[in-house]
Amino acid sequence: MDSLHSQLIVNFSLRKEVSFVAIGSVIGAFTMHLPIMFLDLFGNSSYQIWLLVAAKVVNSSQPEVGFVLHFFVATVIGIVTGIFLHRVLRFNISKIPKGLAYGVISGVVVFAVFAIPVSQVFLGPNTIEILSEINPEMTSTQVAQEVKSNFLNQMINSLFMHIVWGITLGITSSLLTRKIGANYLCHICNIEFSNIKTYEHHKENVHENPSSKMKKILILGGGYAGVGVLNKIQKTFESNVDVNIDLVSESNFFLHTPMLPEMATGTIEPRHIATPIRRFCKRARFHQSKVVDISLDSKQVIIQRMSDKSQKILSYDYLVLAMGSKTNFFGNSNIEKNSLTIKSLDDAIIIRNHIISML
């Protein structure tokens, strides 16, 4: 059982993951400039020339353009790297060592796949042109020979800069993912937690050493009232592992009932107004079951699963009754016999079929 509890499933949002890696890439684009700027203070490098060479790619002579272009490229690379991380690797970078490793690998790969070809195709010729303008006493051939002789040093410096970029990307995206990006799924309860510490407290207090302070909230009904209360409770107790939430509904979907007339007339389809209830259950367990009995004295509810008709007892400290209502015909049996109600998908389908049969 301990091995089961030790398993951790981490789910990521593509949008968040790409955003975090892109942010890390932009910050990394700044930090990779720091070594050049530092060396420039001692006259060992020329940061201004580097920016002019980059600006020359878009036919500009302004160093500011080179600076902006560098950050734009870093953002694009960050987005691509984030998508690759999420779609291809599915690598858990919520732990800083793994994020750091991914960042370093990304830096080396970007250097090999992007930096070297770009330096050969674009930056090399631009460097010769810029240096020729700065040093008119040197011929183009002399400048080209000097650039060629410094090629190895330039590549080493570039590799170092990209590793700095990767380290910054890895640490930044890892910290952001750990704090606000990842959802940690308890595979036993099928509940997600947005914070790793909350998940760990849940595992300890619920599965390993159950807490006597645990409060159980039971919601009966998956309509507007039930789901509305669920959302409010989950938001209030998002990080409180001493609160256990269960929701019971006969249907496994939330129905947007105001749109039932449109469905009955064929304007929309059932899938347009039905949302899986589990999508709302971020901190709650969902039971697709029928309520058989409620004991207010013992604070227990007997439910029957819709799939196999097996019964289960759920205890509670707080009970929310939100099971909806039935159409009241006020004792008019003729109206009840000859009218059509519209409170469910089945009702809307019956009305639609009836309309079609009348054509």
Rank of each mutant, 00 (worst) to 15 (best):
I313R: 10
P261S: 09
I268M: 07
M32P: 03
S94Y: 06
S339R: 13
N153W: 08
I303Q: 03
T31W: 06
N11G: 02
I335S: 12
Y47C: 02
R271W: 00
I233C: 08
T139I: 10
D346N: 12
Q62M: 12
N92T: 01
H86T: 00
G107E: 07
D2E: 08
I27R: 07
V109S: 04
P97H: 04
I351P: 07
L51Y: 01
R271S: 12
H70T: 04
P261C: 12
H272D: 15
G266T: 09
T265L: 15
S46G: 07
L169P: 07
K235Q: 13
T81C: 14
R178N: 14
G107T: 04
V10N: 01
T31A: 12
S106I: 05
L41H: 03
L69H: 01
I219K: 08
G166L: 04
S94K: 02
S310L: 15
S239E: 15
N150I: 08
T275C: 09
E64H: 02
A348F: 10
S333K: 15
V121A: 10
F38S: 05
G78I: 01
T257M: 14
V76Y: 05
M1N: 05
F38P: 02
V227A: 03
A55C: 13
I156V: 12
I313E: 13
H287A: 04
R278I: 01
E336L: 14
H5S: 01
L314G: 03
P276Q: 02
G223N: 13
N209V: 09
G82A: 06
T341W: 04
R285P: 00
V243Q: 02
L255E: 06
P117Y: 10
F237K: 00
I356Q: 12
S339E: 14
M358R: 11
I219F: 11
Q311H: 09
P261F: 10
Q304L: 13
I356S: 09
S140W: 08
A348R: 04
K282S: 06
